[in-house]
Design a protein around this nucleic acid. Structure first.
Lengths: 216, 216
DNA sequence: TAGATTGTTAATCGATTAACAATC
DNA sequence: TAGATTGTTAATCGATTAACAATC
């Protein structure tokens, strides 16, 4: 096991491994080699062994990997046992969707509160989670330390909200607002879901295909 | 200008450039050098010039890049002028959120229809887009060719839906279902939004931070 | 003209792949 | 034991960075 700086590429592959391993468990597979795993995931066996070897020795020579065991190791590396606490800020359709369908618990996260401005939903419970008034957010966070805030507010208030949140000791922001937050706070990690980047990328490939066909 | 295969990394940076350039235009900046752009985006000037040089010569020596012109070039490369048609399949909270807040038009896409099973919303208009019954999807697609389908259905019906859609000549699927579609259809491009991959990655970094603090 | 900054070629760095001894 | 497959070291490949001539 090497104890070097783990590259971003490796880190981003970890959740993919997790999903695949869950899928294998679901299908009753209890043992797999890097060769077979690579074939199923479109990766080389070398890469898979290199990736895991960053964190430890999880396989057995001549045998391969025990699926459930490997799954547990990946989950542990991802910190899924830590039970990070989560609050959602902005309960529009998107916030709603995440509360009802995302399944924070299954991913090891503990969703404890939601905040919104609208009197129509403040005071409600959604999927067992209370919705509080946004005006109380800052005070609430000071009394209830939260690891991660999911930012699903309209774009125009995103930056100021993010700053408020960062000031309250939150460790990570899961940003859905499609703006670059640029917080200059090395202690607050921001992870972005940029919907438009994703769709535009898809558009690029379709455009490329389209151009190729026209050129013929 | 080099006419080689464009790497994935470059392609994924294009939408980031677009967002930054839109932001610069919004702030009235009409000219920028690769040095300044790099500083603002956290990239090296070399990388920026390399990236653009894959597609053409968009700058002027001694001057830099005209922001609006560069923005237009990036938009063109991404195919934003092609007006790809889009249909949403699955109008739950997430589908709803995308219809109401994503802004397909601003990104150059043309959202023309939505499909759902629920009689409560079939027949409605959402943001000016009609919601049709899912049972008519396959026939409808045959009569109304669509470039991209946004897949926002529950996980259990995702795969069969995707296959139906692929059989109807759709060119791309924007997949929100958090499963690996594995369509084996080289003619249908799949772009995934894996919410859980993103949150787990954030969790990894928080866990790493947490472990570091404990080790001290 | 002098200064600035591009586009591109060359150098470096890092990530992926291949090879293989160790061993289950 | 023989066969399989790991973990790791070495080789290769590709992406990023640096350097610089061209030129606005």
């Amino acid at each position: 096991m090497k104890r070097e700086r783990i590259s971003n590429n490796v880190i981003r592959r970890l959740p993919m491994y997790l999903r695949k391993l869950d899928d294998l468990i679901y299908h009753g597979v209890d043992r797999i080699s890097s060769g077979e795993l690579g074939k199923q995931m479109g990766l080389t066996p070398s890469q898979i062994r290199q990736d895991f070897s960053c964190f430890g020795e999880f396989g057995q020579q001549g045998y391969g990997y025990r699926v459930t065991e490997l799954r547990e190791q990946v989950a542990r590396i991802l910190g899924m046992h830590k039970g990070f606490t989560v609050a959602i800020v902005g309960v529009g359709n998107l916030g709603h969707a995440l509360m009802q369908n995302f399944g924070f618990e299954e991913q090891g996260f503990n969703l404890v509160a939601a905040f919104d401005l609208s009197p129509d939903i403040v005071g409600n419970m959604i999927s067992g989670v209370p919705v509080y008034d946004s005006s109380t957010l800052s005070d609430w966070l000071k009394n209830n330390p939260i690891d991660i805030v999911v930012l699903t507010v309209p774009r125009n208030i995103a930056r100021s909200m993010a700053e408020t949140i960062a000031d309250c000791g939150v460790k990570g922001i899961w940003n859905f607002t499609n703006i670059e937050l640029e917080l200059d706070r090395p202690d607050v990690r921001v992870e972005n879901i940029h919907f438009s980047d994703s769709l535009l990328t898809l558009g690029y490939f379709l455009a490329e295909q389209d151009n190729m066909e026209k050129r013929k």
